[in-house]
Design a protein around this nucleic acid. Structure first.
Lengths: 337, 337
DNA sequence: ACACATACCGCAATCGATTGCAATGACAAG
DNA sequence: CTTGTCATTGCAATCGATTGCGGTATGTGT
């Protein structure tokens, strides 16, 4: 074999090819003026020696990394895990969307301790742009970072006056849709399951109130601040349903995960769904298709959501200015309501 | 403000600090001989100007990236999505484990078209090490890459003679445990739900056969090659159960996701679980706690699995030689069996 | 006051690929 | 045979941080 001396960089390859490093670079990177003959020759040589140019060096020179950071701030609830079905679904979709566009995905879970975690990450030069999943309770941080760092988009609720560019569904409308559906099904005593600390949940609750008010049922609402995290809820929810003074005949869960917990609690208490209690979730996750009974829900189209996030981000990276996108959620009636 | 000229590198900062770039580097990176006084002064200056050293340049010089690549090959089944609950759970746990050890996680979905995707990725210099989740049908590729590229570990089944370092549960034992449990519960007609193309599934089926043989029920087994992907199964499974010549009284599903589909199909067909049919899954995912009835399963401890993966990988990065780890799975009896 | 050790700091090479500009060569027209 | 043109290729600076080595200032002991 002639590849005794391992080829470790473009200069080595240039030496055995009898050309300059610059020529090798042009031959391998595809672009640039170079004769077809030498290009073919050098590419063949590179293949033969299993040589691939070092990406880090390229990144440094080129000033781009080809990677997008996906950050998941877990501010309001430390119990909420990165393996939460919602995050995870979104993550998978983002991975697919970014791969299609030729970007890698750099995942970081963030537990905000200080208030410049986002700016630190942005300045580290590790990524070309950042997608944050969920505002959690970090809106201020997001706004401050967005003012200075352009390639940043956020999945979550949209509020008037926010500085950062966000993609999300209209949570108020979604809350309204869900509640209206329960009302149409004849529910008179509705309980909202969810802790309204994060913006999106608060908006869903607002939509819920709005629908009830319109129907003249303003005081038919109870709010039970269930955790977002799967698993933390189960005993709480069971206890709540068991001891509630007036049992609800309709449950609007702020997420599908919470709805699943509710379904199981109801089943254990022997309360028929949808006979005695009707249940509707929020998100439209795949797991809702597998519950018994199948879960009615308000679907946010996460697939186009992910595509929107990526699309806006890449346009921002290209220097464009983009405004937020609010998508319309959609009622999915299955068997739980 | 004095920060008119934006500080973009340590040379700029060195200039306004009146020292050399090298000194700034030493001051910021913590290590190196430097007086406490200048260190404090320079760090203060850096903070004041919101300067953070460029990671790419550092990576190039240091020859490490601080990132680990997590690859998910989707070889045997294109329908299987990255948002599959199992992948996603593993991904979340890996993200946590890697974060703890100070590494970032670079996610890539891989649809193997050629047979050097792994080596290409390894040589790109983008990451310090690679974790592959699931062998899929790529064992040959894994072995070839492992022979040359040290920092590589794989989640999945272990087979004699494999070259790559793997972490996983003993699938044969797991299959045995599940089947033995069904037998003890009195099942006489057992159906295995799962396509045994991937190594791990084949091993679970083998364990199943082994347990049946031991109990003298060798011909009590039917195999229905259900897809691994959630959602693709539902109509197939319903159709199968409806028309099967002899209805099973015990179902061993090769994954919890398949088991969920089976549970729902059974519920739709009005077959009582666990009364008429007993069901057991495999994996021990959180979603099994939310089904109705709660799903019995064979748990692989994914948390320690993820920690093992990270641990072995970091030791390999450090130059150590490590051998594969096979963890013992554990029976979790809930209400479906 | 002198020799010597010590602690800091600066210099400059280095990591590996990219790219503007200059230089070389080939080839055609005059 | 000379000059002009164009296509290729080489040269060297550059991206930004790190680090071994050598130099300078400071401090100690006599």
């Amino acid at each position: 074999m002639t590849d005794r001396p391992r080829i470790r960089n473009i200069a080595d390859l240039a030496k055995i090819a009898g050309v300059s490093p610059g020529t090798v670079s042009r031959a391998l990177s595809g672009a640039g003026l170079i004769s077809q003959k030498t290009r073919d020759r050098i590419q063949a040589l590179a293949r033969e020696h299993e040589f691939r140019p070092n990406i880090m060096a390229r990144n440094l020179r080129i000033q781009r990394t080809g990677a997008i950071g996906v950050l998941i701030p877990l501010g309001h609830e430390t119990g909420q895990h990165i393996s939460d079905p919602f995050f995870i679904t979104m993550l998978g979709l983002l991975a697919d969307a970014l791969t299609e566009r030729g970007y890698d995905l750099m995942l970081s879970r963030v537990i905000p301790t200080d208030d410049d975690w986002l700016e630190r990450y942005a300045d580290s030069g590790r990524v070309d742009g950042i997608i944050v999943i969920g505002q959690s309770d970090q809106s201020a941080v997001l706004d401050r970072a967005a003012a200075r760092y352009r390639p940043l988009v956020v999945w979550g609720g949209h509020s008037r006056g926010q500085v950062h560019c966000s993609v999300g569904s209209d949570n108020v409308a979604g809350g309204d849709i869900a509640t209206t559906h329960l009302i149409e099904r004849g529910c008179k005593r509705i309980t909202f399951f969810g802790d309204p600390t994060p913006l999106e949940i608060a908006q869903r609750l607002e939509g819920c109130r709005q629908a009830l008010a319109r129907a003249g049922l303003a005081d038919a609402l109870t709010v039970f601040p269930a955790h977002l995290a799967a698993g933390l809820n189960d005993s709480d929810i069971t206890a709540y349903l068991e001891h509630a003074e007036t049992r609800p005949d309709g449950i609007f869960a702020a997420s599908d995960v919470i709805a699943m917990s509710a379904l199981r609690a109801l089943s254990e208490l022997g309360m028929a769904v949808p006979g005695e209690v009707k249940v509707i979730g929020y998100d439209g996750l795949a797991l809702g298709e597998h519950t018994v009974p199948r879960l009615s829900t308000v679907r946010q189209d996460l697939t186009t959501g992910a595509h929107n996030l990526v699309d806006l981000l890449l346009r921002r990276i290209a220097g464009e200015d983009t405004s937020s996108v609010v998508m319309m959620p959609e009622l999915v009636v299955r068997l739980s309501s």
